Simulated assay, not measured.
Amino acid sequence: MTAPLFGFGLDSSLAGAATMLEHAAQADRQGLDLVSLSDHPYVGDRLDAYAAVGMILGRTTRLTPFVNVSNLPTRPAPMLARTVTSLSALSGGRVVLGIGAGGAWEEIVKMGVAPLSPAAAVRAMEEAITLIRAMSGGGGPLTFDGEFWQVRGVLPAPVPAPRIWTGSVGEKSLAATGRAADGWIPGHAADWRSARVARSRPVIDAAARSAGRDPREIATIYNLPGRITARPLPAARDGAGRWRGGSVAQWVEELTSAVVEYGAAGFTYFPVADGTPVESALATWATEIAPAVREATAPAPTT
């Protein structure tokens, strides 16, 4: 069992740009593994996600920023390949590619993008993963004649492909994750005890086995909102079974169970608006909860 990853979800609004960079630097100092930003390029008051990632890499030394998840319809796969390999080269490999098929098509088409059916969008996502890998790792000129993208005699970047995590929801997209991706970020902030994950993860695993892959190679990284409270809550989950949060001890117990019993590979924490300063919630997550879960899930020393 590998050590679980701990991340933090950043505010990607233009108005909060300076604060976002401060939070990323704090996360780096306090030992987190990841920070993430959403990608909604059709919204005028949001930062461009990859411009923000570049700035965060320049302000940090160890953590990995990633886009949670890249809006593929507005980011052509060949150029996305060049972007992530460039960021990897600049940062010494501190990059993960989060990718999605695209959901808000009524907004996406405002950017001049031709609409795709849900099935075609999933095929485009899987093809993009294949092309991005082909355009990484060096080698001779590449010709790729896909359904959605074509390149002719392009030299791959001499940089390994990053880890690729999808934000898959539908069955076809989940199957594409099993065949092609390195990780899965469940949609709608579904957690390890949710019905959504219970019915979705088997689709990924079956597709992985059909492709000759070990399903254990595909990590599950959860987007996890919740409160961190000074005192334990009477119930850390609501009536529908959804995680609400609680004290540090309640978080540690729940996340340890998620890793040990459910195989969770990581968590990206999103603070909720409960009056707690974001800096305080981030510090508690990074310096109290994450270390305790890492310790609780570490392999026993061999003698």
Results as ranks from 00 to 15, higher is better:
residue 1 M to F: 01
residue 4 P to A: 06
residue 9 G to I: 08
residue 10 L to I: 03
residue 11 D to F: 04
residue 11 D to S: 12
residue 14 L to E: 15
residue 15 A to Q: 14
residue 22 E to W: 12
residue 24 A to D: 05
residue 33 D to T: 06
residue 35 V to F: 02
residue 38 S to Y: 09
residue 39 D to I: 05
residue 41 P to W: 14
residue 42 Y to L: 02
residue 43 V to N: 13
residue 46 R to D: 10
residue 58 G to E: 06
residue 59 R to C: 03
residue 59 R to P: 00
residue 64 T to R: 14
residue 64 T to L: 02
residue 64 T to W: 03
residue 66 F to T: 04
residue 71 N to D: 14
residue 73 P to M: 07
residue 73 P to F: 15
residue 75 R to P: 11
residue 77 A to T: 04
residue 78 P to Q: 11
residue 79 M to T: 10
residue 84 V to K: 13
residue 85 T to A: 06
residue 86 S to G: 13
residue 86 S to M: 11
residue 87 L to G: 05
residue 89 A to L: 09
residue 89 A to R: 10
residue 90 L to F: 07
residue 90 L to W: 05
residue 96 V to H: 11
residue 97 L to A: 09
residue 100 G to E: 10
residue 100 G to D: 06
residue 100 G to M: 07
residue 106 E to K: 06
residue 107 E to V: 07
residue 113 V to E: 08
residue 114 A to H: 08
residue 118 P to M: 11
residue 120 A to T: 03
residue 122 V to L: 05
residue 134 A to N: 05
residue 135 M to W: 06
residue 137 G to H: 12
residue 138 G to K: 12
residue 139 G to L: 01
residue 139 G to T: 03
residue 144 F to N: 07
residue 154 V to E: 12
residue 158 P to D: 13
residue 158 P to L: 11
residue 164 I to H: 07
residue 169 V to C: 06
residue 171 E to R: 12
residue 175 A to V: 03
residue 180 A to P: 15
residue 180 A to F: 12
residue 182 D to A: 10
residue 183 G to E: 09
residue 189 A to D: 15
residue 189 A to Y: 15
residue 191 D to E: 15
residue 191 D to N: 08
residue 194 S to Y: 09
residue 194 S to H: 04
residue 195 A to V: 08
residue 195 A to Y: 05
residue 195 A to R: 10
residue 197 V to A: 07
residue 200 S to H: 05
residue 202 P to H: 11
residue 207 A to S: 10
residue 210 S to R: 13
residue 213 R to D: 08
residue 214 D to T: 02
residue 215 P to Q: 11
residue 221 I to W: 02
residue 227 R to N: 09
residue 227 R to D: 10
residue 229 T to W: 06
residue 233 L to N: 02
residue 234 P to A: 12
residue 235 A to G: 03
residue 240 A to V: 03
residue 242 R to W: 15
residue 251 W to N: 03
residue 255 L to Y: 11
residue 260 V to H: 12
residue 261 E to Q: 12
residue 263 G to D: 13
residue 264 A to I: 01
residue 265 A to E: 00
residue 266 G to F: 00
residue 268 T to M: 13
residue 270 F to C: 02
residue 274 D to V: 04
residue 279 E to M: 00
residue 279 E to A: 14
residue 280 S to W: 01
residue 281 A to S: 13
residue 284 T to K: 07
residue 284 T to S: 06
residue 287 T to C: 00
residue 289 I to T: 01
residue 292 A to K: 02
residue 297 T to C: 14
residue 298 A to D: 13
residue 299 P to S: 02
residue 300 A to W: 05
residue 301 P to Y: 11
residue 301 P to N: 14
